[in-house]
Amino acid sequence: MNNYIEIKNLNKFYGSKQALTDVNLTIGQGMFGLLGRNGAGKTTLMKTLATLLQKKSGTVNICGIPIEEDKKIRRIIGYLPQEFSMYPSMKILEAMDYLAILSGLGKQERKERIEILLNKVNLIEYSYKKINALSGGMKRRLGIAQALLNNPKVLIVDEPTAGLDPEERIRFRNLLSEIAEERIVILSTHIVGDIEATCENIAILDNGKVLYNGTVDELLANAAGKVFSLITDRRQLPILKTELFITSMHAQGKDVYVRFLSENVTSDMIACEPNIEDAYMFYLKKNGIKLSSLSFDRIGGEY
Protein backbone atom coordinates (compact mmCIF):
# COMPACT_ATOMS: atom_id res chain seq x y z
CA MET A 1 0.00 0.00 0.00
CA ASN A 2 1.61 3.25 -1.13
CA ASN A 3 1.17 6.57 0.57
CA TYR A 4 -0.29 8.91 -2.00
CA ILE A 5 -3.45 9.69 -3.89
CA GLU A 6 -3.35 9.54 -7.63
CA ILE A 7 -6.09 11.15 -9.69
CA LYS A 8 -6.01 10.80 -13.47
CA ASN A 9 -8.42 12.40 -15.95
CA LEU A 10 -11.22 12.54 -13.44
CA ASN A 11 -14.56 13.70 -14.82
CA LYS A 12 -17.81 14.14 -12.95
CA PHE A 13 -21.22 15.29 -14.18
CA TYR A 14 -24.39 16.39 -12.43
CA GLY A 15 -26.90 15.56 -15.14
CA SER A 16 -25.60 17.44 -18.16
CA LYS A 17 -23.50 19.87 -16.11
CA GLN A 18 -19.84 18.95 -15.87
CA ALA A 19 -18.57 19.49 -12.34
CA LEU A 20 -15.02 18.14 -12.77
CA THR A 21 -13.08 18.17 -16.03
CA ASP A 22 -10.00 16.02 -16.56
CA VAL A 23 -8.66 16.51 -13.07
CA ASN A 24 -5.12 15.21 -12.68
CA LEU A 25 -3.48 15.37 -9.26
CA THR A 26 -0.97 13.47 -7.18
CA ILE A 27 -1.27 14.11 -3.49
CA GLY A 28 1.44 12.93 -1.12
CA GLN A 29 1.73 12.80 2.66
CA GLY A 30 1.25 16.04 4.58
CA MET A 31 -1.17 18.91 4.07
CA PHE A 32 -2.50 19.49 0.61
CA GLY A 33 -4.57 22.57 -0.02
CA LEU A 34 -7.40 22.73 -2.49
CA LEU A 35 -8.16 26.32 -3.25
CA GLY A 36 -10.96 27.70 -5.32
CA ARG A 37 -13.94 29.95 -5.39
CA ASN A 38 -17.37 28.79 -4.27
CA GLY A 39 -18.69 26.41 -6.91
CA ALA A 40 -15.22 25.63 -8.26
CA GLY A 41 -15.72 21.88 -7.72
CA LYS A 42 -13.76 21.46 -4.50
CA THR A 43 -16.55 19.75 -2.57
CA THR A 44 -17.35 17.52 -5.54
CA LEU A 45 -13.73 16.39 -5.69
CA MET A 46 -13.62 15.84 -1.92
CA LYS A 47 -16.86 13.85 -1.94
CA THR A 48 -15.63 11.76 -4.84
CA LEU A 49 -12.48 10.93 -2.88
CA ALA A 50 -14.65 10.11 0.14
CA THR A 51 -16.71 7.62 -1.97
CA LEU A 52 -19.80 9.78 -1.50
CA LEU A 53 -20.05 10.55 -5.21
CA GLN A 54 -19.34 8.43 -8.22
CA LYS A 55 -17.07 9.60 -10.97
CA LYS A 56 -18.05 9.53 -14.62
CA SER A 57 -14.61 8.61 -15.91
CA GLY A 58 -10.95 8.61 -15.02
CA THR A 59 -9.05 6.75 -12.34
CA VAL A 60 -8.57 7.48 -8.68
CA ASN A 61 -6.28 5.43 -6.47
CA ILE A 62 -6.08 6.15 -2.78
CA CYS A 63 -2.97 4.59 -1.25
CA GLY A 64 -3.03 2.05 -4.06
CA ILE A 65 -6.70 1.17 -3.67
CA PRO A 66 -8.97 1.98 -6.63
CA ILE A 67 -11.86 4.27 -5.62
CA GLU A 68 -14.32 1.66 -6.89
CA GLU A 69 -13.43 -0.51 -3.89
CA ASP A 70 -15.42 1.74 -1.62
CA LYS A 71 -15.52 -0.64 1.34
CA LYS A 72 -11.72 -0.75 1.48
CA ILE A 73 -11.44 3.00 0.94
CA ARG A 74 -13.81 3.69 3.84
CA ARG A 75 -11.44 1.87 6.18
CA ILE A 76 -8.58 4.26 5.43
CA ILE A 77 -10.28 7.64 5.10
CA GLY A 78 -11.63 10.18 7.53
CA TYR A 79 -13.99 12.91 6.39
CA LEU A 80 -15.11 16.21 7.82
CA PRO A 81 -17.93 17.54 5.66
CA GLN A 82 -18.49 21.20 4.96
CA GLU A 83 -21.69 21.34 6.97
CA PHE A 84 -20.70 19.36 10.00
CA SER A 85 -23.06 18.51 12.81
CA MET A 86 -24.17 15.54 14.86
CA TYR A 87 -27.37 14.46 16.61
CA PRO A 88 -27.99 17.61 18.67
CA SER A 89 -29.31 15.88 21.77
CA MET A 90 -26.34 13.51 22.03
CA LYS A 91 -23.42 14.22 24.28
CA ILE A 92 -19.93 14.41 22.77
CA LEU A 93 -18.92 11.07 24.21
CA GLU A 94 -22.10 9.36 23.02
CA ALA A 95 -21.79 10.73 19.51
CA MET A 96 -18.15 9.70 19.28
CA ASP A 97 -18.95 6.25 20.60
CA TYR A 98 -21.78 5.85 18.09
CA LEU A 99 -19.54 6.73 15.16
CA ALA A 100 -16.74 4.58 16.55
CA ILE A 101 -19.07 1.58 16.57
CA LEU A 102 -19.96 2.30 12.95
CA SER A 103 -16.22 2.46 12.25
CA GLY A 104 -15.93 -1.08 13.53
CA LEU A 105 -13.92 -0.35 16.68
CA GLY A 106 -14.09 -2.74 19.64
CA LYS A 107 -15.19 -1.64 23.10
CA GLN A 108 -11.72 -1.14 24.63
CA GLU A 109 -10.33 0.35 21.44
CA ARG A 110 -13.20 2.82 21.33
CA LYS A 111 -12.65 3.92 24.87
CA GLU A 112 -8.94 4.51 24.37
CA ARG A 113 -9.22 6.12 20.97
CA ILE A 114 -11.99 8.52 21.94
CA GLU A 115 -10.06 9.65 25.00
CA ILE A 116 -6.91 10.27 22.94
CA LEU A 117 -8.80 12.19 20.29
CA LEU A 118 -10.84 14.33 22.65
CA ASN A 119 -7.62 15.19 24.44
CA LYS A 120 -6.01 16.05 21.14
CA VAL A 121 -8.79 18.46 20.18
CA ASN A 122 -9.11 19.84 23.72
CA LEU A 123 -12.64 18.61 24.23
CA ILE A 124 -12.08 16.00 26.91
CA GLU A 125 -13.47 18.24 29.63
CA TYR A 126 -16.64 18.71 27.57
CA SER A 127 -17.22 14.98 27.05
CA TYR A 128 -20.67 15.16 28.62
CA LYS A 129 -21.71 18.36 26.92
CA LYS A 130 -24.50 18.08 24.38
CA ILE A 131 -23.70 18.75 20.75
CA ASN A 132 -26.27 21.53 20.50
CA ALA A 133 -24.47 23.40 23.29
CA LEU A 134 -21.11 23.52 21.50
CA SER A 135 -19.66 26.63 19.90
CA GLY A 136 -18.75 26.66 16.20
CA GLY A 137 -15.08 26.12 16.96
CA MET A 138 -15.73 23.28 19.35
CA LYS A 139 -17.94 21.62 16.75
CA ARG A 140 -15.19 21.79 14.13
CA ARG A 141 -12.69 20.31 16.55
CA LEU A 142 -15.15 17.57 17.33
CA GLY A 143 -15.48 17.12 13.58
CA ILE A 144 -11.77 16.47 13.30
CA ALA A 145 -11.90 14.08 16.24
CA GLN A 146 -14.68 12.01 14.66
CA ALA A 147 -12.84 11.96 11.34
CA LEU A 148 -9.80 10.46 13.06
CA LEU A 149 -11.67 7.72 14.88
CA ASN A 150 -10.47 4.98 12.56
CA ASN A 151 -6.92 6.43 12.49
CA PRO A 152 -7.21 7.09 8.76
CA LYS A 153 -4.32 7.28 6.32
CA VAL A 154 -6.19 10.02 4.49
CA LEU A 155 -8.11 12.86 6.09
CA ILE A 156 -10.44 14.89 3.89
CA VAL A 157 -11.47 18.23 5.38
CA ASP A 158 -13.95 20.37 3.49
CA GLU A 159 -14.06 24.12 4.28
CA PRO A 160 -13.34 23.59 7.96
CA THR A 161 -12.66 27.17 9.02
CA ALA A 162 -15.64 28.94 7.47
CA GLY A 163 -17.43 30.93 10.14
CA LEU A 164 -14.75 30.53 12.81
CA ASP A 165 -13.36 33.50 14.68
CA PRO A 166 -9.63 34.27 14.13
CA GLU A 167 -8.50 32.59 17.34
CA GLU A 168 -10.40 29.38 16.60
CA ARG A 169 -9.17 29.47 13.01
CA ILE A 170 -5.53 29.59 14.08
CA ARG A 171 -6.12 26.87 16.62
CA PHE A 172 -7.76 24.71 13.99
CA ARG A 173 -4.97 25.25 11.44
CA ASN A 174 -2.38 24.21 14.00
CA LEU A 175 -4.37 21.13 14.83
CA LEU A 176 -4.53 20.13 11.16
CA SER A 177 -0.81 20.70 10.70
CA GLU A 178 -0.12 18.46 13.68
CA ILE A 179 -2.39 15.73 12.34
CA ALA A 180 -0.84 15.94 8.87
CA GLU A 181 2.56 14.84 10.17
CA GLU A 182 1.58 11.21 9.87
CA ARG A 183 -1.03 11.11 7.11
CA ILE A 184 -2.37 12.72 3.96
CA VAL A 185 -4.62 15.67 4.79
CA ILE A 186 -6.58 17.33 2.00
CA LEU A 187 -7.86 20.72 3.02
CA SER A 188 -10.40 22.38 0.83
CA THR A 189 -11.07 26.06 1.32
CA HIS A 190 -11.84 29.33 -0.36
CA ILE A 191 -10.06 31.16 2.46
CA VAL A 192 -6.57 31.76 1.14
CA GLY A 193 -5.11 32.41 4.58
CA ASP A 194 -5.81 28.81 5.64
CA ILE A 195 -3.64 27.50 2.82
CA GLU A 196 -0.85 29.98 3.46
CA ALA A 197 -0.62 28.94 7.09
CA THR A 198 -0.69 25.19 6.63
CA CYS A 199 0.04 23.84 3.16
CA GLU A 200 3.15 23.37 1.13
CA ASN A 201 1.43 21.86 -1.87
CA ILE A 202 -1.74 23.19 -3.34
CA ALA A 203 -4.07 22.98 -6.30
CA ILE A 204 -6.29 25.76 -7.55
CA LEU A 205 -9.58 24.60 -8.93
CA ASP A 206 -11.91 26.69 -11.02
CA ASN A 207 -15.00 25.65 -12.87
CA GLY A 208 -14.11 22.00 -12.30
CA LYS A 209 -10.62 22.29 -13.81
CA VAL A 210 -7.24 22.30 -12.13
CA LEU A 211 -5.68 25.70 -12.87
CA TYR A 212 -2.60 25.25 -10.76
CA ASN A 213 -0.89 22.31 -9.12
CA GLY A 214 2.37 22.94 -7.32
CA THR A 215 3.93 24.44 -4.24
CA VAL A 216 2.91 27.62 -2.48
CA ASP A 217 6.39 29.05 -3.12
CA GLU A 218 6.04 28.54 -6.85
CA LEU A 219 2.69 30.24 -6.80
CA LEU A 220 4.17 33.18 -4.90
CA ALA A 221 7.11 33.36 -7.33
CA ASN A 222 4.65 33.71 -10.20
CA ALA A 223 3.32 36.90 -8.67
CA ALA A 224 6.68 38.43 -7.84
CA GLY A 225 6.98 42.00 -9.21
CA LYS A 226 3.26 42.17 -9.92
CA VAL A 227 2.01 43.39 -6.55
CA PHE A 228 2.05 47.05 -5.64
CA SER A 229 0.55 49.44 -3.21
CA LEU A 230 -0.20 53.11 -3.01
CA ILE A 231 -1.76 55.57 -0.65
CA THR A 232 -4.32 57.84 -2.18
CA ASP A 233 -7.16 60.17 -1.39
CA ARG A 234 -10.26 58.11 -0.84
CA ARG A 235 -12.12 60.28 -3.37
CA GLN A 236 -9.85 58.73 -5.99
CA LEU A 237 -11.01 55.24 -5.06
CA PRO A 238 -13.85 54.90 -7.59
CA ILE A 239 -11.46 55.76 -10.40
CA LEU A 240 -8.77 53.41 -9.10
CA LYS A 241 -11.27 50.60 -8.89
CA THR A 242 -11.86 50.82 -12.61
CA GLU A 243 -8.18 51.05 -13.48
CA LEU A 244 -6.51 48.64 -11.05
CA PHE A 245 -7.07 45.11 -9.91
CA ILE A 246 -7.32 45.74 -6.18
CA THR A 247 -6.63 42.81 -3.84
CA SER A 248 -7.04 44.69 -0.56
CA MET A 249 -7.44 48.13 0.87
CA HIS A 250 -7.92 49.86 4.16
CA ALA A 251 -8.47 53.37 5.44
CA GLN A 252 -5.62 55.52 6.77
CA GLY A 253 -7.23 58.67 8.08
CA LYS A 254 -8.53 60.63 5.11
CA ASP A 255 -6.52 58.45 2.73
CA VAL A 256 -6.78 54.87 1.63
CA TYR A 257 -4.07 52.23 1.42
CA VAL A 258 -4.61 50.19 -1.71
CA ARG A 259 -2.89 46.94 -2.63
CA PHE A 260 -3.24 45.82 -6.22
CA LEU A 261 -1.93 43.72 -9.08
CA SER A 262 -0.34 45.35 -12.08
CA GLU A 263 1.92 44.47 -14.99
CA ASN A 264 3.00 48.13 -15.38
CA VAL A 265 4.89 50.21 -12.85
CA THR A 266 4.45 53.93 -12.30
CA SER A 267 6.34 56.27 -10.01
CA ASP A 268 3.73 56.46 -7.22
CA MET A 269 3.49 52.67 -6.85
CA ILE A 270 5.37 50.86 -4.12
CA ALA A 271 6.46 47.30 -4.97
CA CYS A 272 5.27 44.73 -2.45
CA GLU A 273 6.21 41.18 -1.53
CA PRO A 274 3.27 39.09 -2.77
CA ASN A 275 1.33 37.09 -0.24
CA ILE A 276 -0.61 33.99 -1.22
CA GLU A 277 -3.81 35.97 -1.61
CA ASP A 278 -2.12 38.21 -4.16
CA ALA A 279 -0.60 35.20 -5.88
CA TYR A 280 -3.92 33.40 -6.00
CA MET A 281 -5.70 36.39 -7.46
CA PHE A 282 -2.89 36.95 -9.92
CA TYR A 283 -3.11 33.34 -11.04
CA LEU A 284 -6.86 33.51 -11.56
CA LYS A 285 -6.47 36.78 -13.48
CA LYS A 286 -3.62 35.38 -15.55
CA ASN A 287 -5.77 32.41 -16.54
CA GLY A 288 -8.51 34.66 -17.79
CA ILE A 289 -10.93 33.98 -14.97
CA LYS A 290 -13.59 36.66 -14.82
CA LEU A 291 -13.28 38.23 -11.40
CA SER A 292 -15.96 40.84 -11.76
CA SER A 293 -17.96 39.09 -9.13
CA LEU A 294 -15.28 39.85 -6.54
CA SER A 295 -16.35 42.82 -4.50
CA PHE A 296 -14.17 45.26 -2.62
CA ASP A 297 -16.79 47.69 -1.57
CA ARG A 298 -15.71 47.86 2.02
CA ILE A 299 -12.70 49.80 3.10
CA GLY A 300 -10.67 47.86 5.56
CA GLY A 301 -11.20 44.28 6.55
CA GLU A 302 -10.01 41.28 4.67
CA TYR A 303 -11.39 39.69 1.58
Partner: peptide
Amino acid sequence: AKMSELIYIRKES
Protein backbone atom coordinates in the same frame (compact mmCIF):
# COMPACT_ATOMS: atom_id res chain seq x y z
CA ALA B 1 -28.86 16.29 12.01
CA LYS B 2 -26.48 16.38 9.01
CA MET B 3 -25.22 12.96 10.02
CA SER B 4 -25.84 11.11 6.76
CA GLU B 5 -22.39 11.61 5.26
CA LEU B 6 -20.65 10.94 8.57
CA ILE B 7 -22.37 7.55 8.67
CA TYR B 8 -22.06 6.79 4.95
CA ILE B 9 -18.26 6.92 5.07
CA ARG B 10 -18.01 4.45 7.96
CA LYS B 11 -16.95 0.88 7.56
CA GLU B 12 -20.29 -0.59 8.65
CA SER B 13 -22.36 -2.10 5.83
